[in-house]
Design a binder for these strands. Structure first.
Lengths: 225, 225
DNA sequence: TCAAAAGTGTTGGAGTTACACCCATGA
DNA sequence: TCATGGGTGTAACTCCAACACTTTTGA
């Protein structure tokens, strides 16, 4: 009892968003099994590090990315999910802002790349299933907590937030009603600055008010768009 | 790499409900560490069983209970959470109906007992924290999915459901409005039978319509009481 | 001056809350 | 007949959805 040969890994599904496209961060595996195939970044947990630390370290080693939000997703443990033996994986869910999209393969990965979630390559292990759970979570999250802070740039025009929701929900939303609802949450600060995107009327920039944003998140919120 | 000395356990927080009281199932530990102390049931995962199977087996071995609902809760992995070394635990969340309250300590437990969640003994390991997460989940669940099927008897008077919600929410709810809302969900079938609880007008019995209940659960629902 | 994106209010309807009295039974 | 819990309807209000034109800029 307790003399197991089970090993433990962490994996991280990291989402990024820019210009109406949601992307996932994948690596091309450097070693067997599934050498040369695409996979979610992750790896074995060291004996004295916490789970979250393990994820952060693996992400750093494999992709060089700096994450702005990380939460535990689900633990996958089917006995045959890994050809190397019994390996249980604790999957995490991460979000990054576009300005930290800069990535670079390193130690354990041959290549790192952002993939549009609607155009993914075949994945290793049971990573397709993990990604499905993560995608569901992402879509689910926006209906019960404000999201955006972790995915958008620090300063952004309102239309970026609107486009993010449109993309995640997969349908059009009414601009006026959406703005009213978001404004009423009282988590945005309107800045003096404007931004011009080539053509059209320049947009005011907003930023999230950290304090009120996290307060709202903690309190929990249910809002339908 | 991958030559770990990390071991894996499962733990289960099992809730029961009867007569306005929410209880948790605890065991008194038979062996060190924390011998003679109360703890959440659980134990080591065998090498060829799935996580869920492991939980079910441990619950059977330690408490003899038959569970009516079981879902994964969260994985706890702080390096120092167990004095025996690095042990990561995958916690599950379970619900049982009152008529299966019959429990019996066996192999690994010296004693099994239901505890009112408002009157708990000191717990072993980080089980207090696990229980907190589970309690939060329990309370959270009732606002975004119908619950009750897994906690109430197969046939029950409407007042039982009402009392369950009152208890979980920790506040009074309007009887008429509550009934209207639940009825409008269309998951209850009214039976011909009545039940008399000693004094007062006898109540009609209801049962959940399995099909519509699970359909609603899958679809996801947000309803405020 | 035209094209492109940003910004802005009002109204009708649906759904929710608030609220109090009668009913059926056992003692 | 009284005490106990069960069962029911309506009116006011709040919140949400639907809907289209004006403003500001760059080309």
């Amino acid at each position: 009892m307790g003399n197991q040969k089970i090993r433990l890994t962490v994996d991280a599904v990291v989402f990024g968003y820019e210009d109406g496209i949601i992307s996932v961060l994948l690596i091309k595996r450097k070693y067997e099994p599934y050498k040369g195939k695409w996979a979610i970044p992750g790896g074995f947990i060291l004996e004295n590090e916490s789970l979250k630390k393990a994820v952060e370290r693996e992400l750093q080693e494999e992709t060089g990315i700096k994450i702005s939000y990380l939460e535990q997703l689900y633990t996958f443990g089917k006995p045959d999910r890994d050809p190397r033996g019994r390996i249980v994986s604790i999957a995490y869910f991460g979000l990054v802002r576009p300005n930290v999209f800069s990535i670079s393969a390193s130690t354990d990965a041959e290549e790192v790349q952002w993939f549009n979630i609607d155009d993914l390559p075949k994945l290793s292990f049971d990573h397709k299933e993990i990604l499905n759970v993560a995608t569901q979570r992402l879509r689910g999250k926006i209906t019960y907590e404000p999201i955006g802070f972790e995915l958008l740039d620090k300063k952004f025009p309102f239309s970026d937030l609107e486009k993010l929701y449109t993309t995640l929900l997969g349908r059009k939303i009414d601009r006026r009603n959406f703005r009213k609802k978001i404004i009423s949450l009282n988590v945005l600060d309107e800045l003096e600055e404007k931004i011009s995107k080539g053509s059209g009327r320049p947009a005011n920039l907003f930023k999230f008010n950290q304090e009120r944003y996290f307060h709202l998140k903690e309190k929990g919120i249910i809002f339908e768009i």
